[in-house]
Design a protein around this nucleic acid. Structure first.
Length: 424
DNA sequence: TCTGGGGTCCTAGGACCC
DNA sequence: TCTGGGGTCCTAGGACCC
């Protein structure tokens, strides 16, 4: 008998739903959301799916469908989605003490024990989130996280949107039957490679996977696969992570909106990405000891490719954007070569440690107090008036290289964006 | 005309030490 | 003439997630 019940709450077509909250006229119309640089489809409404738009497809491949069906297209508006996500999570936190924010549009909730009212609770969650945030969600319950995930998938397929409870003891859906009807690749944690290997071995359903011998599972899908099978058997192996562990590496990487050749332009991008990574670093109260910069040519274009990484170790771990920036630009100078068409730059911060345990370097004097207060002030201003309101001049003014977002919706929930920008 | 970004975990294999 | 074995650390690469 399991001690806990897990619920997985998943926002339906989350990015589309966010846009619809502020554009009710889009209800029941086909809508798709594009990735950064307006590259490919990362979210679609049910109507767009019915038009035959596949997930992850490059926009160019579905342009004819967009025209034919009058599909409404948006660039990704992450500022809006992140804000809506925090509203949804805040609402969910009213229902359970133990909540794990699993992704921008999903959360696991844990309830202390099995009880008969799960279906009703699920429907209350759905109604409340919809009423308070405008976002429709699906809810699945199960004795383990993997089963809750599966139940959620089942709920999403239901026409009335009601919650799915995987718990035979209380008259819910039969676990065996659901597992039998679920293709093995639909199990959370089984990707393309493992699915192919499993199918070759005749394991085509979640039920056959669950009932496979432990030794064989371990051999075929490593301990990760074995753990999943245990979870499907109802033995909880994946615990709820209520406070996310600090990231061990932080990365900011983006393709440019247009081809880039000049060192000065790359330097602007590297400075911008370093600034973003540093914000993430400070947000989790950490310092980094290593900075890496990678620049690369366009892998999708024919011809010789260029890709180089340069890494520098800092004398003292820091979260000071200015210090990180100086090292990042030095990295860039070590690998920049003229005559190449660059398409992407990446800045990575690693060997991350807690800000509480930094040992200052006696021989490299640096005013930590001053740096900390400056960064705190910058973060406070940007938190209030929008990211990049105050930034290092090195990150550029015009920034013609930034990603394409031709179909960006307004920033409905962050009103200060249009204030004049200030340079640090 | 295009083809995203940001993570984690696991394993294998090499280097190195005692 | 013989060329062990166990342990740790690091890195690269694979696989997976949303």
């Amino acid at each position: 008998m399991a001690d806990n019940v897990f619920a997985l709450v998943d926002c339906n077509a989350f990015y589309v739903s966010c846009e619809r909250v502020f554009r009710p006229d889009l209800e029941s119309r086909p809508v798709v959301i594009l990735s950064n640089n307006d590259g490919c489809v990362v979210a679609r409404s049910d109507e767009a799916r019915a038009c035959g738009v596949p997930m992850g497809e490059p926009i160019g491949q579905v342009r004819h469908l967009i025209r034919r069906h009058g599909i409404v297209v948006f660039s990704s508006n992450y500022a809006l989605y992140a804000d809506m996500s925090s509203r949804v999570m805040a609402t969910l936190s009213l229902f359970a003490d133990a909540l794990e924010v699993y992704s921008i549009d999903e959360a696991f909730l844990r309830f202390p024990c099995r009880h008969g009212g799960a279906a009703a609770l699920g429907d209350r969650i759905r109604r409340t989130v919809l009423r308070d945030t405008g976002i429709p969600v699906s809810v699945g319950f199960g004795p383990t996280k993997t089963l809750a995930k599966l139940a959620n998938r089942c709920a999403r397929l239901r026409l009335d949107g009601s919650a799915c409870v995987l718990d035979p003891a209380t008259g819910g859906v039969s676990v065996d039957r659901l597992l039998e009807e679920t293709p093995v690749e639909a199990v959370w944690g089984i990707g393309r490679q493992h699915a192919r290997r499993l199918r070759r071995a005749g394991i085509c359903t979640a039920r056959l996977f669950r009932d496979a011998p432990d030794g064989w599972l371990r051999e075929t899908c490593t301990v990760v696969g074995l753990r999943l099978a245990h979870e499907l058997r109802g033995r909880s192996c994946l615990s709820l992570e209520t406070c996310p562990p600090a990231k061990r590496e932080i990365c900011s990487s983006r393709a440019f909106g247009r081809p880039v050749h000049e060192r000065s332009v790359l330097a602007e991008a590297v400075a911008t990405y370093t600034g973003r990574a540093a914000v993430k670093l400070r947000r989790q109260q950490s310092r980094a000891a290593v900075v890496s910069v990678m620049i690369e040519s366009d892998a999708f274009r024919a011809g010789p490719q260029y890709r180089r990484t340069s890494t520098r170790r800092l004398p003292v771990p820091t979260a000071d954007t200015g210090v990180l920036l100086a090292h990042a630009v030095a990295c860039l100078d070590a690998i920049y070569r003229g005559g190449i068409t660059y398409r992407r730059a990446t800045v990575m911060l690693s060997e991350i440690s807690s800000a509480a345990h930094v040992q200052p370097d006696f021989f490299a004097p640096h005013d930590h107090q001053c740096s900390r207060r400056l960064m705190a002030a910058v973060d406070a201003i940007n938190g209030r008036f929008g990211a990049d309101t105050v930034r290092y001049a090195g990150s550029g003014l015009e920034r013609a290289w930034t990603m394409r977002r031709r179909r960006l919706s307004p920033r409905y929930t962050t009103v200060w964006r249009d204030l004049p920008q200030v340079r640090a």
